[in-house]
Design a protein around this nucleic acid. Structure first.
Lengths: 211, 211
DNA sequence: AACTATACGGAACTTGGATTCCGTTTGCAG
DNA sequence: CTGCAAACGGAATCCAAGTTCCGTATAGTT
């Protein structure tokens, strides 16, 4: 088959990503992503680049060729998580019970954070990264729809605004990583917050400062 | 050895702290604490030691003589905050309305964190420091009393345990520092959580794993 | 089989920040 | 007024990452 030539312009049937990469490069990129996902999930954002490289059975240089900066790598990983979040949101928008849909979305957001320390830290102290990723997948609009729908059905108190959902998610995330005696108790707090969101409201919320 | 000098009766009338320190040392120590308090409150835990020194109009060496380590300095500052928290807790234990007492304590804990970014970070990612400080002032017992009292009065749902109060405080703290669109909205979340704590419970909380 | 653009590995470099060191200054007891 | 231990200041040192560099290896092509 060496003679044929045919369509040689760039690789064809790509495995669904990154065009024009040499086979080994693609393989390594995947390895790096996989290793990083695991490491950052376990150790948080200060897992080290050399460790990522080692875990991926690759040299540091290779990691840096695919992700020029540690932040780029983090952003890439965060991006994936947000895609999952957005998927979940869309899924719950179809839920028979709008209220349960919203609750499950909240529970889900707490769970993925419980499973990924790096994500917690992004949510908790990287507004820029989080903002970018959220916007990229349209999470904001999705939250808004989730909220409106649950309010229309009468189960969600009327005075919450969509922005409060991501904020709650962040707050819950910060707690899932609790060590010591509090470890593993976070699901209880999720339910407490959910009860607080349920209509009718007992407290009148202070007026938000701006939009 | 120099002849003797024996034990010289430490100077009396100390201004209520650190015995046997030379006057200038005492003064500087205060300056360092004040400067650090401000800097860490504004910039969080990664404010730098040289900056603390500069702000205190003192050399780095001096900072280190009083606090051998950055962590020691942080722990000292955190200690002070926890003293305030404990005071507030005792105060609210006297409140006429047990439920309002608990709520005000929660609001207060959110507020001091909103005013001190460093404290938020200690609460959010320094279990050791926080644990130590909390224990030193007996905060745990105080939370327990606050909880029991509010449950006895029938306003606080029966299924929450004292440990959940500090956890809630941490979660709220993580949110007070929100930038961007969410900034300034945290008091609303505090009220939502409070509503979730109010009896009767709508959700049955998952059973805590251990004690 | 030879060729070359791509990729690779990982030692070396850079940086930012905590901490140390030591010559000088100062409070204060005698 | 002196003497000296207690304090000081801050340049210098150490260290832990992140990031760069460049000689070598290899996929894909002719």
């Amino acid at each position: 088959m060496t003679t044929l030539t045919e369509i040689k312009p760039k690789s064809h049937q790509d495995t669904s990503f990154e065009p024009g990469l040499r086979a080994d490069a693609r393989r390594n990129q995947q390895a790096v992503i996989a290793a990083a996902k695991k490491l950052f999930a376990e150790e948080g954002l200060d897992a080290q680049m050399p460790d990522v490289a080692r875990a991926a059975k690759v040299g540091v240089g290779t990691v840096y060729r695919h992700f020029p900066t540690k932040d780029d790598l983090i952003a890439a990983l965060a991006g994936e998580r947000f895609v999952r979040l957005a998927e979940k949101a869309r899924e719950e928008l179809e839920a028979e019970d709008p209220w349960e849909g919203l609750c499950d979305f909240i529970r889900f957001s707490a769970q993925i954070q419980a499973d990924d320390r790096g994500l917690c830290e992004v949510m908790g102290s990287r507004p820029e990264v989080m903002g970018g990723a959220a916007e990229a997948v349209g999470l904001e609009k999705l939250c808004d729809q989730l909220v409106k729908r649950a309010q229309r059905s009468g189960d969600l108190r009327k005075d919450v605004e969509w922005l409060e959902i991501p904020m709650i998610a962040c707050a819950l995330g910060g707690i899932t990583k609790a060590h010591g005696p509090g470890a593993g108790r976070w699901p209880r707090l999720v339910e407490i917050v959910i009860d607080g969101l349920r209509a009718p409201a007992k407290s009148k919320l202070p007026k938000p400062l701006s939009t």
